Simulated assay, not measured.
Amino acid sequence: MQYFAQYGLFLAKCITFSVLILLTIGGLVTILRSTKQKSPAGQLQIRDVNERLRELADSLNAELLDAAELKRHQADRKKSQKQARKRAKQPAATVRPRLFVLDFCGDLQASAVASLREEISALLQIARDSDEVLLRLESAGGLVHSYGLAASQLVRLRQRRLKLTVAVDKVAASGGYMMACVADRVLAAPFAIVGSIGVVAQIPNFNRLLRKHDVDIELHTAGEHKRTLTMLGENTEAGRAKFREEMEQTHALFKAFVAENRPVLDLTRVATGEHWFGTQALALKLVDGISTSDDYLLSRIRDADVYELRFRRRKALSERIGDSLGHWATGLRRAGRNALINEF
């Protein structure tokens, strides 16, 4: 019996290994096939927000209303849908406005700008004068040039004279506020963090540690200010002064950009690098209203057709293979745990 038990366990392991190989091959084939079929850049996904919110409300009504009330509600819904179809056939001048919802969740490099630029490029080709864009923004800032590009993408909407609203549910600070200030209207949740119009930089220096161990660092430059502060070489007072000068220049450009896009601000009061909560930011005119993005959407679905836009970047083949192998490895570990439980 012990022999048959060991043989059965060996056979199960062989089958598991064979299945894993087949899944790997099948996954690679699927990835290669989808790579050929999909757009080389990615895909724009569109979701009807009006319909999604109606479905949520219908689910509650189905549970809470009695039969007569539910019947009346369904009759009203059919009437509303009929009116919507009728409006869709009317001339463009009488068509309901559209609200396009974009999301920007910023990291240090503002990497979400890769999707944002695609979404805005798509919008600019089909937008009508009555349309509006809502950007749900969340970012604590990051690299100057990265967030400068992200803000420039929003400027494209303003140049096209499309109404832009930015909603800050959690944080829009530093580079995040650089983006927010471009909007016609900025909304913030009561405890959202807003502001921080300032510049910060820090760099470690290991020169004394290296000298202690008799390690020399040579740095050769052409140009007096090609390098100011370094991590390994010996920093000078002249280098520090130049570095601080460059930071002040960056701060001046930041303030000029904010002043141009939001002239109501008292920059001497708010451009100190501090941040404020939503209600405080309203008093300082950093924002125009206190509201969550959810409340704003609920208020707009009554008179506008609301659509969420998401540009999904197509991952490189190596990324897709890595993700697939990661999922399979996770599944294999779970299967191994189950096998151990069953075995003992």
Rank of each mutant, 00 (worst) to 15 (best):
R33K: 11
C14N: 08
K163T: 14
I321E: 04
E119R: 01
N61S: 13
L232V: 04
R312G: 04
S18F: 08
V133T: 06
R269F: 00
T94M: 11
V270K: 00
I217G: 03
P263G: 03
I217L: 08
P40G: 03
R33L: 05
N50A: 08
M178H: 04
L65I: 04
R208N: 04
Q280Y: 02
A188N: 02
L102F: 12
E218K: 11
T268W: 00
G42P: 06
S121N: 15
T268A: 07
G42C: 08
L32H: 10
E55G: 07
G273P: 11
L332E: 08
L317R: 11
F191T: 15
A241E: 14
Q153I: 06
A122G: 06
D107P: 09
L340N: 06
A172M: 09
S318M: 05
F100Q: 00
A75I: 12
L99M: 12
T228L: 14
R314E: 11
V133G: 00
Q2K: 10
L157A: 00
R185S: 01
A281N: 05
A112W: 01
R98A: 06
R227F: 05
C14G: 11
D303S: 13
S39Q: 09
L102V: 14
F206D: 05
D129Y: 04
K285A: 12
F104Y: 11
D294L: 09
V155P: 00
L143I: 09
T228E: 07
S34W: 07
R185D: 00
F254R: 00
P190R: 13
A110T: 03
V258I: 15
E224W: 03
D216N: 10
E138K: 13
Q249N: 06
R208I: 02
D305T: 04
F100H: 02
G148E: 12
N205F: 02
L267F: 04
L99A: 06
A222T: 13
E224Q: 11
V19G: 01
M178L: 15
G336R: 10
Y7G: 04
A88H: 12
L137S: 01
K79A: 14
K78H: 12
D303M: 07
I217M: 12
G223W: 07
A151G: 02
A140Q: 13
I341F: 12
L157S: 05
L28C: 15
G331E: 10
L232I: 04
E319L: 03
E218S: 09
R128C: 06
Q90N: 09
R211L: 13
E248L: 12
P40H: 07
A192K: 04
D323G: 08
F4C: 01
K285N: 14
Q74K: 15
L9N: 14
L23E: 04
L297I: 15
S146G: 03
R96G: 03
R33W: 12
K242S: 05
L282V: 07
H225G: 02
D294A: 15
A57H: 06
L209Y: 11
A252E: 15
T16D: 01
E245K: 13
S80Y: 07
G322V: 03
Y3V: 08
G27K: 10
L298Y: 13
N261W: 14
T30W: 12
A62Q: 15
D288Q: 03
V182F: 01
C181S: 12
L149T: 10
K242M: 10
S39C: 08
I25V: 15
G326F: 09
L162P: 00
M178T: 09
L162G: 01
V215L: 10
G8L: 15
R240W: 08
N207Q: 12
F10M: 07
K86N: 07
E308H: 13
Y3H: 08
